[in-house]
């Protein structure tokens, strides 16, 4: 280990502080706005002069936000679950099996990953309207799965390649049946990768705005990012800034929790596909 001198320590600390400020200022600003009282919300001060939880009370009293939150959670969870299951199957096949069309599948999912999503909005809008999927949960879940799958397949196949599959043989030699070898040796080793992928896919679904605003029309399926536009405040002329910010803070909480607890895994997941190439 190199000796860390005080000078180096100070220099790095300053750099670290710059990074932290850079990353957190917009988040703290939203947080600050959400806690400002109605009277002080327009004062332009970075720190609230008058603290208030009124904005939070307001959003939880209106159906608009609660319904959107339920839609966001439900749609994201279902899409994540399906994408991870399908992605795990495909990634296992890509990492472990030899079959025709493997390269084609990898290439195709790459194509999907880079696809301009707006190109799909027009046809999907039309197709979903004729199939009565417009403004429904499945109507959003389907495109989410589609665009989450490449992410899931890349991340998972990179993780699966890292698993020492010789352990499967070792387990068989130790007297395990194929099912036991999978359950007691392979599954525990694959679980972290699957979990990490689930987080990344969830963030992706949670984040979407374009599909949410194009393929929904009412509170039936509108998710929070799309619903924020429609916040009007209690009366027609009231400024909705505080409520938008309160809602924004609420939907940022899960992201912050993921990042705090699973930083290492998210970094590993995001970079695995990129390096392995």
């Amino acid at each position: 280990m190199a000796v860390i001198t005080t000078g180096k320590r100070v220099r790095w600390t300053i750099i670290d502080v710059i990074v932290v400020v850079y990353a957190l200022v917009p988040v703290l600003w939203t947080l600050s706005l959400s806690f400002k009282s109605k009277a002080t919300i327009g004062d332009g001060s970075f720190i609230p002069q008058e603290w208030s939880v009124q904005s939070y009370v307001d959003i939880f009293q209106t159906n608009d936000f609660l319904l959107a939150l339920v839609n966001s959670i439900g749609i994201s969870l279902i899409a994540t679950a399906i994408a991870v299951v399908l992605g795990t199957m495909a990634a296992y096949a890509i990492a472990r099996l030899d079959f025709p069309g493997k390269t084609a599948l990898v290439g195709f999912s790459l194509l999907v990953a880079m696809f301009p999503q707006v190109s799909l909005v027009s046809p999907l809008f039309s197709i979903e309207r004729s199939l009565s999927l417009f403004d429904t949960w499945p109507g959003l879940i389907l495109p989410y799965i589609t665009f989450a799958l490449p992410l899931a397949i890349y991340t998972l196949s990179a993780f699966f390649r890292e698993i020492p599959w010789e352990l499967e043989k070792a387990a068989k030699m130790d007297g395990a049946t194929p099912a036991q070898a999978f359950r007691r040796v392979i599954a525990p080793l694959a679980a972290p990768g699957v979990f990490t992928t689930a987080i990344l896919v969830f963030i992706f679904c949670w984040n979407d705005f374009l599909f949410a605003i194009s393929l929904t029309a009412t509170t039936r399926s509108r998710t929070v990012p799309a619903a924020l536009q429609f916040f009007t405040g209690a009366s027609q002329f009231e400024d909705p800034t505080g409520q938008i910010c309160a809602a924004a803070v609420v939907i940022t909480i899960p992201i912050v929790l993921f990042v705090l607890f699973f930083q290492r895994r998210i970094v590993a997941g995001l970079t695995s596909g990129a390096v392995k190439g």
Binding site: E166, K169, M173, D174, A176, T177
Partner: peptide, 10 residues
Amino acid sequence: PKDRDIAMVF
């Protein structure tokens, strides 16, 4: 393998 009662070191 499991029915052969042999152990292996890899």
